[in-house]
């Protein structure tokens, strides 16, 4: 299989801050997880691959070509950024429609593609509402819709699970798997190992701008499991939720905060499964789930010692 993304000695610095340092990398697999704590350089690497940045040193190639200001490469790429940026005074549908037009589609194609992408991301009902009225999860879905509307060959998803509820996360995992099965290459960045684990076994591990490792996931997972994992569940009924976790053998500690419960566990997958069941049975019980990357940080500390 030929490399989709190839970086040779790529560095990127902003003033005195080195965001990516001498990165040598080759991404070939269908789904690649870009993993690292906040500030590791994941987003910078994605933006280098998208041509939004020029490397300060070295060279990056996507589909064998330099991506910066390269329309032939851009035609084959979709990108869902981490942060919420939207055009002013637009609805979700208009947002996708105008980006389709900027892609170079005719009016008719842009309309059809926007409707189809909204349908795929379950936004059809609300697509004519202003984006300002959307929840975080809906904004995330509309960003994914714009990335998929042009049916790209390579999709970059920068922290796509942010803000999604358990059901939304499930759908996102399924969507990524389906896209990869259909032949699309997907690069997903996250600072949470367990998110990446659900979708791929190929990871690129970054830390402070350097490539720590590129390889198979379960080796890292072994290291991670030695450290308790913290899951913060936002709910007004945190006491009720906590009861079910008392019986789980790998839960080491439960901490109560205002309208939230922090679960420390050595077996996070069991906890996530239980939380998903709870969320499905009782909509509104769980308002949000955030995962601390403390344990990942401790693995990075261990690896870089």
């Amino acid at each position: 299989m030929t490399a989709i993304i190839e970086a040779q000695g790529v560095s990127k610095w902003f003033g005195e801050v080195v965001a990516v340092n001498n990165l040598n990398l080759s991404i070939e697999s269908r789904i690649t997880g870009l993993l690292g704590p906040n500030g590791a350089g994941k987003s910078t690497l994605i933006k280098l691959a998208l041509g939004l940045y020029a490397p300060s040193r070295g060279e990056i190639r996507v589909f064998g070509s330099r991506p910066r200001n390269n329309n032939a490469v851009m035609r084959r790429i979709g990108y869902c950024p981490e942060t919420d940026y939207f055009f002013e005074n637009t609805t979700g549908y208009e947002f996708v429609y105008w980006l389709n037009r900027y892609w170079g589609m005719s009016r008719r194609d842009a309309r059809r593609a926007a409707e189809a992408a909204c349908e795929l991301t379950r936004m059809t009902e609300r697509m004519h509402d202003p984006i300002t009225a959307y929840s975080k999860g809906m904004r995330q879905r509309i960003k994914i819709a714009q990335a998929l509307a042009s049916s790209p060959e390579l999709l970059f998803l920068d922290e796509p699970m942010n803000g999604l509820d358990p059901r939304g996360r499930d759908e996102m995992y399924a969507l990524i798997q389906a896209l990869a099965d259909a032949g699309m290459a997907v690069v997903v960045s996250s600072h949470i190992l367990y998110e990446i684990e659900r979708i791929t076994d190929n990871i690129v591990l970054m830390y402070r701008g350097t490539l720590l490792a590129q390889g198979q996931l379960h080796d890292i997972r072994g290291l991670i499991d030695r450290h308790p994992h913290a899951i913060r569940v936002e709910s007004r009924q945190s006491c009720a939720i906590s009861k079910d976790f008392l019986d789980l053998p790998d839960v080491t500690r439960l901490e109560f905060e205002e309208n939230a419960l922090v679960i420390r566990t050595r077996e996070p997958n069991a906890c996530y499964a239980l939380l998903n069941d709870m969320a499905r049975k009782n909509e509104g019980l769980i308002e949000g789930i955030t995962c601390s990357d403390d344990n990942l940080q401790s693995v990075f500390d261990y690896l870089t010692r």
Binding site: L50, G51, L52, N71, A72, M74, R75, I77, Y79, P81, T83, Y85, F86, F87, E88, L99, Y102, W103, G104, Q146
Partner: peptide, 13 residues
């Protein structure tokens, strides 16, 4: 507003 990011990742002249 950083919507430029979307435009620059389109194959738009």
């Amino acid at each position: 507003m950083r919507t430029m990011t979307y435009i620059l990742t389109r194959p738009a002249s």
